[in-house]
Amino acid sequence: MDQLIEQIVTGLSIGSILLLVALGLSIIYGSMGIINLAHGEFVMLGAYAAWVFHTYLGLGLLASLVPIFLVVATFGWVIERYVLSLLNNRPLDTILATWGVGIMLQQAVRLMVGSELRYVQLPPALADSMNVFGIPISSYRVFLFVVSIALFGATWVLMNRTTVGMKLRAIIQDRSVAASFGINAKRVYALTFAYGAGLAGLAGALVSPLKSVSPDMGTGYVVDAFMVVVLGGVQSLAGTVASAFILGELSGGIAFLQNDTVAKTIVLLAIVVLIRFRPEGLFTARVRA
């Protein structure tokens, strides 16, 4: 029984990290239709920003979260403004462009700070562990869970209860009609992309104490985040949450069963079959052609 609860708690912890990484990707993909292959590099930038703030400015992780969000969001804004906005009618080419941008970011970081692994300290206040249902678990993981849910809530409010969110939803429905109502689609897109990038940066900063930081750390995250978005369904934030925790529990269980190749193969094949038979994702009710 204890083991089962432990498995579930581990799964929740993995799921919350997945949700953190996938949330930004889901916003960008769902609203702009851009497959952002540079997403993993935004995660990596966030992790390096945490390291830089800590090593050179002596800021703790929690204190530097807001500046990290702003820094990575600025990167995102610049990339949207000067690269992606030129590719409005060529969705396939955005894959290529963001991939190229990702390579540049990765290589630039490698040239500037080297490719050796870096480590970020846990915030001292969250370094101990606490009891959840009688299972000892590190406070930091509980903190991550709470933060990921909070960020999801904030994003939901932003999309559904603010003017910017309403404008964005109008553009998703019909860009030209929205524009004729005076909505500046370019500006909203740039802000959306910046927000998504900022979220990825936050995700990178938040996972940095748990894993080592390296220039190519983003590659794994972008694949995982994609699976979450594909499984959850485009344009469905709630679906993203559900699929993040489903995948979290699954990978927890698979790690328990221990055969990496079989696990990966099964997950990839499942994704392939899912795309073929339900491209709109598991949790989307409405389909718009």
């Binding site: 497959i35 396939l92 190749t261 990966k264 094949l269 994704i271 392939v272 073929r276 038979f277 491209p279």
Partner: peptide, 28 residues
Amino acid sequence: FMFRGRVTGVYVSIITLATMVVINLVII
């Protein structure tokens, strides 16, 4: 498998990439 189901665009790219990775994993 893909085109009979009218899979297009980005999804074709994801499926082809995933299939290749699966075969690669099996060979290794």
